[in-house]
Computed example of a mutant assay.
Amino acid sequence: MTTAAPPASTAQPRAAWSAADLARDTSWCIRLEPAETADMLRAVQTAQVPGKPLLAYARSDFAFSGATLARIRRGFDEAQHGLGVALLKGLPREGLSPEAFELLTWGVGLHFGVARPQDKQSRYMNKVMNVGTVYRSAGGRGYSSNAELDFHVDGSDLVLLSCYNQAPVGGDSLCSSAITALLRLREERPDLAAALFQPLHYSRQSEQAESQSPVMVLPVYGERDGRLFCFWNRNRVEQAQKLPGVPALTAEQREATALLDDILRRPEVMYRMRLEPGDLQIMSNHTALHSRTEFEDDADPARKRTLYRLWIATPDGPALPPLWADFYGATESGTVRGGIHGHAYDEHCVAFDARQARDMGMRFDPGQRP
């Protein structure tokens, strides 16, 4: 089936950037003042209770100052409503254990949205560290491998990635504008653009709940209210092709997605950054795609590359295209949506989601799962 692709959106012009744009205008890179770094250190040290589960913490436990929250808000606004990417520099790192730094990341998230579970174990925070996972496998996830990753989006409005340790070799963060990539593709091969607005099958990587299908169906691009949205993860599409009953990709779909991947990695489109300890990257999963280079770890286990990843549903996220419901569940703005509920989503998860939704003024339906 071939359908005409919607026209390119003009509703989010800052989100259509090039690598040169990010290099020239560095307003998306926000450095905390020393007093704000000290404020965050004090707040997490005051809040931390040994052995207390993350889901038991509330936003009120992290008493960041108004100045600190305003600085962080600049990053969230840039990622949500501007370029689609922001980098906060200067989070306290020295003097914090990995567990305390993880908790600090969690505390930041509690002030700006509702965290979403990310995997089969229904974990709300993932440690991004190589534990030997095979990325290209039926249950493969990139965050637990050292492999170079395909360009992809994650399963929430925003993804936060905080850096505790960086690898001595590799592990650079890569990002590209999904809107710029589509505009380039339209210029070069307008005959292929429509294929990216047709539904594709994505594997759930064996992480689905019992009531869910092993696949989800949605296009690479969609549109709502004049805004473009992207959902792309080649690894999940290729794994879905191995499942029974999934239709084979058409020649047009394969050509279109191959060209998209090529454009995303072009030097003029792709921006490369190297996260340093104390950095917090914030990225939109609707208008930006991200990747990572392969890396080699430090021989000292205490210095292994260690980052913390948090998925956030935000109170001011845009309304999503209707077809996004197959992954996100809810698509309206102001709702708790997205995430991978997995196999351990229990009453503790429901209680956290409900309490945090109340704190953020968001709607939460415990019976509505993606």
Rank of each mutant, 00 (worst) to 15 (best):
Gly90Ala: 00
Phe112Asp: 09
Glu94Val: 04
Asp157Ile: 00
Glu99Asp: 13
Lys120His: 15
Met125Asn: 00
Ala100Ser: 08
Ala115Met: 09
Ala79Leu: 07
Asp172Lys: 09
Gln121Phe: 09
Thr46Glu: 14
Asp119Gln: 12
Cys175Gln: 02
Asn126Leu: 15
Asp157His: 05
Cys175Leu: 12
His111Cys: 08
Arg116Ala: 05
Gly66Met: 13
Val49Trp: 05
Ser144Phe: 09
Ser144Cys: 12
Trp106Met: 04
Val108Thr: 11
Ala70Cys: 05
Ser65Thr: 13
Gly90Trp: 03
Gly139Met: 14
Arg116Pro: 11
Ala58Trp: 03
Val49Tyr: 03
Arg116Leu: 09
Thr105Gly: 14
Leu87Trp: 06
Gly142Lys: 00
Ser145Val: 08
Gln166Cys: 07
Glu94Gly: 04
Val128Leu: 03
Pro50Lys: 06
Pro98Ser: 09
Leu103Trp: 04
Leu174Arg: 10
Phe76Ile: 11
Val85Arg: 05
Gly109Arg: 04
Asp157Thr: 08
Phe62Val: 03
Asp150Arg: 10
Ser173Asn: 10
Ala63Ser: 13
Gln48Lys: 15
Asn126Ile: 13
Arg141Lys: 13
Val128Met: 06
Tyr143Glu: 01
Arg116Lys: 07
Pro50Val: 09
Ser65Trp: 02
Gly171Trp: 02
Ala167Phe: 02
Phe112His: 12
Gly66Thr: 14
Thr68Cys: 13
Lys89Phe: 09
Ala63Gln: 15
Val114Phe: 06
Ser173Ala: 11
Leu69Trp: 11
Leu158Arg: 02
Trp106Arg: 07
Ser176Trp: 01
Gly155Asn: 13
Pro98Gln: 08
Asn126Gln: 14
Gly132Trp: 02
Gly132Leu: 05
Ile72Thr: 03
Asp61Ile: 10
Ser176Cys: 08
Ala79Glu: 02
Leu104Val: 02
Leu160Ile: 02
His81Leu: 12
Lys120Met: 15
Ser177Gly: 03
Met129Cys: 14
Gly75Cys: 07
Val114Glu: 07
Gln48Asp: 14
Ser122Gln: 12
Val131Thr: 15
Thr46Trp: 00
Gly140Trp: 07
